[in-house]
Nucleic acid binder design. Structure first.
Lengths: 156, 156
DNA sequence: AGTGATTTAATCGTGTTCGATTTAATTTGA
DNA sequence: TCAAATTAAATCGAACACGATTAAATCACT
């Protein structure tokens, strides 16, 4: 059982697995942001969604989904909650009734100030230079791109 | 609205946010592993859990939880599913009846071969040297450690 | 114009995550 | 010894993630 497959993977321990390291870092960000988001009355996925809207307002659900790698089955209920809380509005497009346009309300836009504070707090907690972080972001985006492209070839 | 807060954060776009880059990379790993895990009949979180057991068998639920940053509320149902599928056993400790010891079954141990194949596939898809990946893992673990230590200081 | 294919969002069921609480076993201290 | 505190896992409810399906609108093509 558990014969050696390649030299490089022998003895790889959990902590050294890239996927686990990413899992943990994601987890840590989640935990870090959660209490602050709670103060704002939103969850971390809702925060990520709002980030996408701060960057570009009035997006279609599917447009947001491409950006966030989520689909309507996840986004629809999440967006309905943000709408209920008054941070966004959801309106059917006049040109194409199939499309739902998601827009920030004034109250939603108002969250961005608090959000920028937290980002700054996270950044300073990391105690890293902007260059280091930028390089890391590039590497992670590269990994994401390559894994997405590889698309997990399931042979059999 | 959205006044500048610090020089460094001005104009930070979604793609450049570290938390979003990590979110996406985690997502990509999830998607990458999912179809293969499906073939093995397990989910990605179940896979991560089994990794921890491959590394150290016969762990208590809380011990596993420390390793995976999960608690019994998440682990208990997940472990029950793994038990139902016959990959692990859950037995109350004789010394302390409060503790539940999680152990791999032969069938569970048998998954490790398939798992190592997938890891290798992911590694080659990344097209990166072992050194690069190792360094990245170290950086991510560092981020995780610092964020966890910072513990999100909510002032008000 | 009208039928079939496509697109868009919504819905449904299962599994994961987590805060909060509960239950049972063990430990502590009077 | 025995009641209070602590610990370990389980339970509960809400939110998220996703595969699969559905409903409605639009498009394409004859």
């Amino acid at each position: 059982m558990a014969e050696k497959k390649t030299e490089e993977f022998q003895g790889f321990e959990l902590d050294q697995h890239l996927c686990f390291a990413i899992y943990k870092a994601n987890h840590a960000f989640n935990r870090f942001y959660k209490p602050v988001m709670k103060k704002l009355g939103i969850t971390y996925p809702q925060y990520i969604t709002l980030l996408a809207l701060f960057e570009k307002d009035d997006q279609r659900v599917s447009e947001l989904g491409e950006r966030l790698f989520l689909e309507s089955n996840t986004l629809t209920p999440l967006l309905k909650r943000l709408e209920e809380m008054g941070f966004i509005s959801r309106t059917r497009s006049k040109e194409d009734e199939r499309q739902v346009i998601v827009s920030l309300t004034d109250e939603g836009r108002g969250l961005s100030d608090g959000v920028i504070d937290v980002q700054h707090c996270a950044f300073t907690s990391l105690d890293a230079s902007l260059e280091t972080v930028t390089e890391l972001v590039d590497q992670l985006n590269d990994i994401q791109r390559k894994l997405t492209a590889a698309k997990a070839k399931v042979p059999a």
